[in-house]
Nucleic acid binder design. Structure first.
Length: 834
RNA sequence: GGGCGAAUAGCUCAGCUGGGAGAGCGCCAGCCUUACAAGCUGGAUGUCACAGGUUCGAUCCCUGUUUCGCCCACCA
């Protein structure tokens, strides 16, 4: 029995009701083993600390569309959900809370702090999961994982131990990027470079033993001079030949440092003399290696000058700069200051300016891993779409440097390495060793560092499926079918999953990678809290409904282009939802007592209009599927929009009234069948995009009783088969004719106005054929009703300027009938009017 | 310094393998028409950034220019 639908679509109640139902019934569940073909996607795990933002909304809408579509196509779909422990980010959140209580983590101690983070996670972490549900995400929630849960921790330890044994993990004391606020090392890609205005200070370094003589060095960071252990010139620079091998006096500290010759120096830049600070500059570090220079670390872990800076000890690095510049000037050693643009690196978590910092860290030797990851894409075993991202991927993989994986924070996977204080042996093992394997001492202490968050997420495609155990899930769902993500984590995540997947599973982690755009505001600005231009997806959902929002995102998701989200567009698709809703109401009103089982489309006496809409439905199904195959979400969405509104609603529903309200029972029944069939299939096509409204209407549609006890093949539209192109419902000639009808009706509109149109609500346009002229337009349609227009279509008040305006040149053979009031002879009308 | 992308109606954007310039919103005019005023009907609006080239034909392909945006890079 059909249910009464409310006059306008009210999303909130519908969304809540159906999501609960789907979840209760276990419709999102994937089977570990199944006869059906497998389709799998792993979610890019959002940070536990996260709240749903536009990026998530887009990313997960696109994934959900694919999952729902594949499920309807009969696949055994696994959408693996979960969250990331987000080391630094999460630690920062909890540290801020502590700060608000006037405490810091060191007061608590490591264990208590970690406990506190877990407590926080239990209480308020994972709100994003609830928000994903609001979005309609059809993840298999029963499988939800966390990058620090027991299974994933085991996977992380296994990988670490194996890589260590393979010689792919090592420790080294070198310069890394250090965040003086987070107090941890960062990998190269965790540093965000920004062009900033700075200065180039030209400083005089007196030559030792030659009073009055000095060389001028140019630097953007005068405070680092405290750590200078040389100045360098180019070996072939004629100006400075005499200087090479001599010593200069480091101003302020009055330390003698050598002048070295190194090809690294650019003669053209500045004065051609460079101060060398091996402990605080990546280039200088290399120069220092070549010339065996001291590495003088002048900062503590907060970027405050340490004892090596003598009289400046205790000064923050920027305060030190100010003071050093002032003192140099006082001493007459500051020659000049130039404005100078430069790029400054900031911590990707807290934006603090990072410091090149000398320290002992753990690294992954990535070159061998990268080679395979590179090859897999070149071979096409993994496709990256849009294709232009392949180059970016290649470029990065080809120039990749070793990955610093240790972090000096507490929240994360603690590195499974133990140091023996007696013999210095390092034991790397799955479980805590009881004694040193080398000297037998039981005084072992575990490494305090934890792993980079991205280390555990690199394992996500297989760790979530139970690896290192050989599970049925791995067998069924690995490699995954597709990964959908933003380009911002191509290096952080995608590239590393490729490396780890190939190394540990010997197979790529996914066959397709679809890179989507960034969501910006309507002006094209990146959304950020500081700019105050953030649009909250949940506010949008409240206001317009999830389906409208999802449809908007899909319609905007053109490949390779950022999305500038304009709120008016969302309103437009909210209207579209309402249009679908009302088309359904109209259909339902006319389907009283209709049983789809009794009237199969095949074999019905279809009118031209029937054939046309069935043909267009058929084409739309074909086009939508094809667009989705190619990740052309916007084309799929736009095609459905056009079909629904401009064809089904604007034309077919109007045409159908003639038959539905007419007195030909056969026509009426056929029309009801076509209406039902078209709407039912349209709902299925729309379902991946608009899951809620389509389920609500689908449930209200008359059920096919053929399957027994009034039930459908499936209880939910989620598992109703996705429409495919059917050869026998292809009526190209009907489509061609209908286009002509539309053209003719438009033509008739041109002669309205000066026609006397009797009162009444509708008229039918009937075309009969006779002459050659009309045959050209209407040859298959003798005597049939081709179009129905409302009386208001024939608006009064607009005349014809010239005969060509009446594009009904065949008017002599065309008659307009007004069913309620009799017949208007167009030929006569035209005669009269023109 | 390399690399990538974009420039189409007032606004936000489609336009995939050269031949019709399009959508939504906004604007103007008219409609409370029993599916829908979150709607219906009609209307106005464009040197498709600029300059060359290829072609019977270019928004689309090629070259160059300009303007924006992004990514990567160790020139102090």
């Amino acid at each position: 029995m059909s249910r009464e639908l409310a006059k306008g679509y009210e999303p909130h109640d519908v969304e809540k009701r159906w999501y609960a139902e789907w979840e209760d019934k276990g419709y999102f569940r994937a089977a570990a083993t199944s006869d059906k073909p497998a389709y799998s996607i792993v979610i890019p795990p959002p940070n536990v600390t996260g709240a749903l933002h536009m990026g998530h909304a887009l990313n997960n809408t696109l994934q959900d569309i694919l999952c729902r579509w594949k499920r309807m196509q009969g696949y055994n779909v696994l959408w693996m959900p979960g969250t990331d422990h987000a080391g630094i980010a999460t630690q920062n959140v909890v540290e801020r809370q502590l700060a608000a209580e006037g405490k810091d983590r060191h007061e608590l101690g490591r264990e208590a702090f970690i406990e506190r983070v877990w407590k926080w996670k239990a209480e308020s972490g994972g709100q994003i999961i609830g928000q994903l549900k609001r979005l309609g995400a059809s993840c298999d929630w029963e499988r939800e994982r966390f990058t620090m849960d027991e299974g994933l921790s085991k996977a992380v330890r296994t990988v670490f131990v194996k890589l260590y044994q393979d010689g792919l993990i090592y420790r080294d004391n070198r310069l890394i990027n250090w965040c003086p606020r987070c107090h941890t090392a960062l990998s190269d890609i965790e540093v965000e470079h920004e062009e900033k205005k700075g200065h180039l200070w030209h400083i005089r370094y007196p030559v030792a033993g030659e009073p009055g003589k000095y060389v001028v060095v140019a630097t953007t960071r005068p405070e680092t001079m405290l750590g200078d252990s040389a100045v360098a010139v180019h070996p072939e620079d004629e100006r400075y030949q005499a200087l090479i091998g001599k010593k200069v006096i480091l101003p302020l500290l009055n330390r003698e440092i050598p002048v070295v010759a190194d090809e690294y120096v650019d003669r053209e830049f500045g004065t051609g003399v460079v101060k060398i600070t091996p402990a605080h500059d990546f280039n200088d570090f290399e120069v220092g290696l070549r010339h065996n220079l001291d590495r003088i670390n002048i900062f503590d872990e907060s970027g405050v000058i340490n004892a090596a800076g003598h009289q400046y000890e205790g000064l923050d690095r920027f305060a030190a700069r100010t003071r050093i510049v002032a003192e140099l000037e006082e001493a007459g050693l500051l020659e000049r200051i130039n404005d100078h643009g430069m790029s400054v690196g900031g911590c990707y978590r807290c934006k603090t300016v990072v410091e090149p910092y000398l320290s002992l860290q753990w690294y992954v030797k990535v070159a061998p891993l990268a080679e395979r990851a590179l090859q897999a894409v070149k071979d096409g075993r993994t496709r990256i779409l849009p294709k232009q991202w392949e180059n970016t991927y290649y470029d990065w993989m080809e120039n990749i440097r070793d990955w610093c994986i240790s972090r000096q924070i507490w929240w994360g996977h603690r590195i499974p390495a133990w140091f023996c204080d007696h013999c210095g042996e390092i034991t790397v093992a799955m479980e805590t060793p009881t004694s040193c394997a080398k000297c037998g001492s039981d005084e072992l202490r575990q490494e305090t560092d934890v792993l980079d968050t991205w280390f555990s997420s690199a394992l996500w495609p297989f760790s979530t499926m139970g690896w290192p155990d050989q599970t049925a899930e791995l067998k069924t769902f690995y490699p995954t079918s597709c990964l959908i993500t933003g380009f911002d984590i191509l290096f952080f995540w995608v590239a590393r999953m490729m490396m780890m997947g190939l190394h540990f599973m010997d197979e790529v982690p996914f066959t397709d990678v679809y890179i989507h755009a960034l969501v910006r505001d309507a002006q094209g600005q990146k959304m950020s809290k500081s700019k105050g231009n953030v649009i909250d997806p949940l506010t949008i959902i409240e206001q317009y409904g999830t389906d409208a929002f999802r449809f908007t995102l899909a319609a905007f998701a053109a490949q390779g282009r950022d999305i500038k989200l304009a709120e008016e567009r969302i309103a437009g698709y909210r209207n579209f939802c309402n249009k679908v809703w009302n088309a359904a109401r109209f259909t339902l009103m006319n389907l009283e007592g209709f049983d789809p089982a009794t009237t199969k489309i095949e074999g019905l006496p279809l009118s031209q209009g029937d054939r046309w809409i069935l043909h267009r439905l058929n084409e739309t199904a074909r086009d939508t599927g094809k667009a989705l195959e190619e990740y052309r979400y916007n084309e799929a969405a736009m095609g459905l929009y056009q079909f629904t509104w401009s064809e089904f609603c604007d034309w077919y529903l109007e045409l159908s009234k003639k038959d539905l309200y007419g007195d030909d029972p056969e026509r009426k029944q056929t029309t009801r069948s076509v209406l039902w069939y078209t709407l039912e299939n349209l709902l299925r096509l729309l379902h991946p995009f608009m899951p809620f409204i389509t389920e609500e209407i689908w449930q209200a549609l008359p059920k096919n009783r053929e399957t027994g006890n009034g039930k459908r093949e499936t209880e939910t539209i989620m598992y109703a088969p996705y429409p495919e192109y059917c050869e026998h419902l292809s009526f190209p000639e009907a489509a061609a004719d209908m286009e002509k009808v539309m053209a003719v009706v438009s033509g008739i509109r041109n002669i309205r106005g000066e026609m006397e149109v009797p009162p009444g609500r509708e008229i039918a346009v009937i075309l009969s054929c006779g002459s050659q002229e009309s045959l050209r337009l209407m040859k298959h349609n003798e005597g049939s009703i081709l179009g129905l227009v409302r009386i208001s279509d024939l608006a009064i008040g607009q005349g014809i300027e010239k005969p060509e305006d009446a594009s009904i040149q065949v008017a002599g053979d065309v008659q307009i009938y007004v069913p309620l009031k009799g017949l208007v002879d167009v030929a006569a009308e035209e005669e009269r009017l023109l």
